[in-house]
Nucleic acid binder design. Structure first.
Length: 123
DNA sequence: AGGTTGACTGGGG
DNA sequence: TCCCCAGCCAACC
């Protein structure tokens, strides 16, 4: 049998209040920033990390979004290359992020990326 | 307690 | 431009 790549089993648990102490605070901060991104605009993981004063690494930002509350528009966060990192996740339907962004008027190039120069949101 | 794994990134080949 | 690697650091087990 081919080993199956799996997602964090407890990712969804974090949504239901299992984040403790300072971590909880850092995750909340990420969610608050992402909630402020207007429809049709984008931010990168690294950009959010810097906004937080680098208290949380870009990887940490990804963690914060994995299993975020329903009202957090996670699809408006892309990687520094303008690509969709969520396409590699087993628990996210391939093409979902792309579809959500196109629905907001974001143009996705043929190579599957977006133009950050054009859509990047600067708070 | 410590090794492994990422929703990352920038630099080098 | 693409691929690989080291640095990154929180969460998992």
């Amino acid at each position: 049998m081919t080993p199956v790549r799996r997602t964090r089993p407890s990712a969804s648990k974090r949504v239901h209040g299992e984040i403790q102490g300072n971590r909880r605070h850092a995750f909340d901060a990420v969610w608050e920033i992402v909630r402020r991104i207007p429809a049709g605009r984008l931010m990168t993981y690294g950009q959010i990390s810097v906004l937080l004063g680098s208290r949380l690494s870009p990887v940490g930002v990804g963690w914060a979004l994995h299993g975020c509350p329903e009202d957090v528009p996670w699809h408006r966060v892309v990687n520094a290359s303008g690509g969709f990192s969520t396409d590699r996740l087993p628990d996210v339907p391939p093409g979902l992020q792309k579809a959500l962004l196109k629905a907001e008027g974001v143009e996705v190039r043929l190579d599957g990326r977006v133009d950050l120069e054009r859509y990047r949101w600067l708070p």
